[in-house]
């Protein structure tokens, strides 16, 4: 119920905010000297842009209920079918990157937590601070430069020119090859913060009285770390994992635009610039949905991993 209210609130707010921006999709047509004002008016009327705001919101909600998510002025078709194929590409990129980032961050952060006040600690602190400070755009452009200079990786796109003619196995390899740079850019962007979180959580757990008690009982350090400290440190990390699901749709927009990845990024950017209102709202709403889903998943995972939460529920 709470989630539904949030979804409705976000939809209303984004609808109003998008509509409040000056100009509409058809404004740029006015710059074409061959198109008359009457034609532009007729087009605005056809798409209902001359109707009052509540009515437009109502129409959009109705179209949402049908699963169309509104109507794109630019493409002249419902938003839903435009989003799905691109959503798949975006998810391929972000799910791969998120999974890889977690797979890297958990062991690295755990290892880092056990190496406090050493040269490794200083090096990792410096490296993650640098990566955190580096703007994503610079990171992406740097990787792109690498691709252009060396020719090791493709400079953009998701598949090679002759992709359709390739056998099945080669196609998978082709997509994987094209994934390397954009995934690297995303992972380098996510990992530093994640590693620091993992390190802090594990370090906290390692300093906790029950860990000291375990050590005092003579339990080997490795078992203390994996059997006792890590499950306790998992709690904040699970919440963070839920949140990172919310970013699945939006985290790669910039990378997609710069690296011509056929996901939501280029579509979303163009829709914003062109004031293709409903096309902007589609991904916004989908992101909200993922945020709610991510929170729910995190809660369920927490309940599964943390006995204290299960006890409270009872």
């Amino acid at each position: 119920m709470h989630g539904l209210l949030l979804l409705a609130g976000v939809s209303l707010l984004s609808f109003v905010l998008v509509e409040l921006a000056p100009g509409d999709y058809f404004a740029e047509m006015r710059l074409d000297p061959r198109i008359s004002e009457a034609t532009v008016h007729a087009l605005r009327a056809r798409y209902g842009l001359d109707r009052p705001l509540p009515e437009r919101y109502g129409r959009w909600l109705a179209s949402l209920a049908k699963g169309e998510l509104g109507y794109s002025f630019a493409y002249g078709q419902p938003v839903g079918p435009l989003l799905w194929p691109r959503l798949r590409n975006t998810l391929l990129l972000t799910v791969t990157a998120t999974a890889l980032a977690w797979l890297l961050a958990v062991p690295l952060g755990t290892w880092w937590a056990t190496r406090r006040r050493g040269p490794a600690d200083a090096a990792l602190t410096g490296l993650t601070a640098m990566l955190l400070a580096l703007p994503d755009l610079v990171l992406v452009l740097g990787l792109l430069l690498l691709a252009v200079r060396t020719g090791w990786f493709p400079t953009g796109g998701m598949v090679s020119l002759g992709h359709e003619q390739m056998p099945w196995g080669a196609r998978v390899k082709d997509v994987a090859f094209h994934l390397v740079l954009p995934v690297a850019a995303l992972v380098l962007g996510i990992v530093p913060a994640l590693v620091r979180y993992v390190r802090a959580s594990v370090a906290d757990a390692l300093g906790a009285p029950f860990v000291r008690a375990a050590r005092a009982h003579g339990i080997p350090e490795r078992r203390v770390l994996f059997r006792h400290a890590l499950p306790a440190a998992a709690n904040p990390l699970v919440s963070l994992f839920g949140l990172s699901l919310a970013g699945l749709l939006s985290m790669s927009l910039l990378v997609e635009v710069v690296m011509s990845w056929p996901g939501l990024g280029p579509l979303f950017l163009e829709a914003i610039l062109a004031r293709d209102f409903h096309l902007v709202l589609g991904p916004v709403l989908a992101s909200t949905f993922l945020l709610l889903g991510g929170n729910l998943l995190a809660d369920l995972l927490l309940a599964a991993t943390d006995p204290r939460i299960r006890t409270e529920e009872r």
Binding site: L144, G156, V258, S260, E270
Partner: peptide, 16 residues
């Protein structure tokens, strides 16, 4: 579809 001029230049230069 190459959504920016700079990316177009890079891909032209790379022979794509």
């Amino acid at each position: 579809l190459v959504p920016s001029e700079d990316a177009q230049v890079i891909r032209f230069k790379a022979g794509e």
